[in-house]
Amino acid sequence: MAQLHFELVTPEKLLVSKPVAMVTVPGGDGEYGVLAGHAPMITSVRAGVIEICAEDDEKISERIFVEGGFAEVTPERCTILAEHVIPVGDLKKARLLEEAKALAEKIANAAEGDLPALQAQQALLDAKIQAVA
């Protein structure tokens, strides 16, 4: 089977660039998997986890959390542009839950104008917690 070349790029550097069997991408309209030969498409990416299967044995070999970005898929490539990238292993559940609690308090006391920014933060934190759960 033809291989899929997966690339994960941040503005600071090219993080991952290697052939893989499959990747799962948290698309803006829902998660989708990409295998070699996928129809070309461009999608947005929401905060969530990218799962990479390096070999054909269908086991996930790497999980990486992204805070949103864009993905370009062609039959032989899958490129993800993301700004903030954290390997799931580096996310600590206890810390995140603490942060979520503090944030919830902040939201409860926040002024009307600050709400959208805080809620965006909360959504991001929720996505992170879901990643480690």
Partner: peptide, 20 residues
């Protein structure tokens, strides 16, 4: 070094924008 490291992202962003 930093400028070179930033190039891949800019290139891919450009490619995406162009196809869009």
């Amino acid at each position: 070094d930093a400028a070179i490291a930033a190039r891949p992202y800019a290139e891919r962003m450009d490619r995406m924008l162009r196809s869009l």
